[in-house]
């Protein structure tokens, strides 16, 4: 009898102690995290292009937090999907082609200014307010603010807006990654000769 009693008491005591330790730890080492939506939002590219089917990146972030698939963001592409998968602890899916394909390089909208009739339709469509102009005045894109979301292309009545890849400048140019040793063959002398 006493053996059982001792066992019960011991276990009870242990559980009380461990419970207290755990409780203390949960208070003392509490992780103050951002709400998950903000974390997701910070990973999205903020092009506000709506290709995911939501009116902007934050709504999509909310939808993801609510369980929507993470592979609907073509501007972010595979890297964003990977980052989201990492954050949410889910499997990284390939980009959903239904929402568009990932572009090889960053794009920026350019208005062929000679053809612009000043209809302001693109200004209304631009989620960034990155198009400058007034009614019957020529419009122009503030390239620094343009996210290349392509929402201004469709409304243009005279099709004078193009999306062009962002050009490399002296400031953004950098050396490319050298070929990895495993990819070289014996006759490749020279270190990653630039093309």
């Amino acid at each position: 009898m006493s053996i059982i009693l001792i066992a019960v008491l011991t276990l009870t005591g242990l559980s009380i102690i461990f419970g207290a330790v755990l409780g203390f730890a949960s208070v003392r080492f509490r992780v103050e995290g951002n709400p998950i939506v903000d974390q997701i939002d910070s990973l999205l590219p903020q092009t506000q292009c709506g290709q995911c089917g939501h009116p902007g990146c934050h709504p999509y972030a909310e939808a993801i937090a609510g369980g929507e698939a993470i592979n609907k963001c073509p501007p972010g592409g595979e890297s964003t999907i990977a980052a989201l998968a990492d954050l949410l602890g889910v499997e990284a899916l390939p980009l959903d082609g239904e929402h568009g394909s990932e572009k090889a390089s960053k794009m920026v909208a350019v208005i062929r200014e000679a053809e612009c009739i000043g209809c302001t339709k693109c200004i209304q469509a631009c989620p960034m307010d990155a198009i400058l102009g007034a009614a019957k005045q020529m419009h122009t894109v503030i390239a620094d603010e343009c996210t290349g979301c392509d929402l201004c292309i469709e409304p243009c009545p005279v099709d004078c807006i193009d999306l062009v890849p962002v050009a490399t400048t002296l400031q953004t140019w950098h050396w490319q990654q050298p070929l990895s040793p495993e990819k070289l063959i014996a006759t490749d002398a020279g270190r990653g000769i630039a093309a």
Binding site: P178, G190, R191, G192, I193, A194
Partner: peptide
Amino acid sequence: MALLNISS
């Protein structure tokens, strides 16, 4: 002969 462009 084309000159090489190589990183230092």
